Amino acid sequence: MKHRRITKRRTAIAGAAAAAVVGAAFTLQSATATPAPPRAADLLSAPAAAKLASSVTSDLRGDTAGAYYDTEARKLVVNVVDKAAADKVREKGAVAKVVQHTLAELKEARTTLSDKATIPGTSWSVDPRKNKIVVTADRTVKGGKLRKLDTVLDSLGSKVALQRTSGEYRPFVAGGDAITSGGGRCSLGFNVTVGGEPAFITAGHCGKKGSEWSADGAAIGAMEDSQFPGNDFALVKYSGDAEHPSAVNLYNGSTQKITKAAEATVGQKVKRSGSTTQVHGGEVTGLNETVNYSEGTVEGLIKTNVCAEPGDSGGALFAGSSAVGLTSGGSGDCSAGGTTFFQPVPEALEEFGAEIG
């Protein structure tokens, strides 16, 4: 098993996209005045907000404390810890929000959690809206495990917040299109090319290097690489001469064309396609999530409120024509809802030297 590699892209996202923006213009008005509607030129799309977040956090470096996208106001909100940084943020066209904790303080708290609270059934990531690390514990965290977790959280004070989920964190093994190997079923993520040769990416926990894969009863290829835990991605090289369109199955007789890979942004609207529950939508709620499955810890995941179930593993998380993530695991189901985690696609492509297509 390969050790997880921290890429430059993920490091940038941990600083830039770990922030969120809540829109509200800081313009003084009289008590009776009616606020003027925002100009179309001042509104940002989710991709534009992600690009601006990267630029702002890069320029201000340690003076920012995360950012997020306010979907209703269509603005980028950047957390800062002093007035001087707030002025710089506004000059760049984003909304400044003065908060208590710096990213360095939250990073130190994450290190403490990793050292002292790596307990199966827990996860955590920075929530830029709350300026805290939100730690989630599933239903298996009780008794001595819960007491241990509470002790660590108490030591971190206002930098952390605990929430519980009634489900149980597990990889979704059991699917866009269904793919099978050795009696197990997962879902194909995205078709890619490696050195001009066709392949696809899926979840690493779905199978081991060298495993043979089939679709609709026909052999389609062998797994060239698989990484789990640490990461959760795998590469399967196609065999044969069949067509491999760069598209996601929408399970309504049509497909969504995929033209590129993109980083996720907190607040972004996304959809997931899998062979068990087909297509469901929701929102990105966290980035750089650390998830402690019983099989081991996976870091750097995307957290969403999109539902998924066993067999959806490896399936596509996308936003329009952009490939965003590969279904990893989570809790709940598509009847009651739940939390689902996704391996970011750009990191998998970088690791394999692959391109969407």
Rank of each mutant, 00 (worst) to 15 (best):
K130T: 15
N131Y: 06
K132F: 02
I133R: 00
I133N: 05
V135M: 11
V135C: 12
V135W: 09
T136E: 01
T136P: 00
R139W: 04
V141A: 04
K142V: 10
K145R: 12
K145H: 13
L146G: 05
K148C: 00
L149V: 13
L149K: 11
T151I: 08
L153T: 12
L153K: 13
D154N: 04
L156N: 05
V160S: 02
A161C: 00
L162P: 08
Q163S: 13
R164N: 08
S166Q: 13
G167L: 06
E168I: 15
E168D: 08
E168H: 11
V173C: 02
A174V: 12
G176W: 03
D177H: 14
I179A: 14
T180M: 06
T180H: 05
S181P: 01
S181Q: 10
G183I: 04
G184M: 12
C186P: 06
S187W: 02
S187L: 05
S187T: 15
L188S: 08
G189F: 14
G189D: 08
T193A: 11
T193Y: 10
T193H: 10
G196Y: 07
G196E: 10
A199G: 15
A199K: 09
F200A: 06
I201C: 04
T202L: 03
H205P: 05
C206K: 00
G207K: 02
G207T: 01
G210K: 01
G210Q: 05
E212V: 14
E212S: 15
S214D: 15
D216P: 02
G217A: 12
G221L: 03
A222M: 03
A222C: 04
D225A: 15
D225T: 13
S226L: 04
Q227S: 12
Q227G: 06
F228T: 12
G230L: 06
N231C: 03
A234H: 09
L235S: 09
L235A: 10
L235M: 10
V236W: 09
V236I: 15
Y238Q: 05
Y238G: 07
Y238N: 07
S239K: 00
S239I: 01
S239P: 00
D241S: 14
H244F: 13
H244T: 06
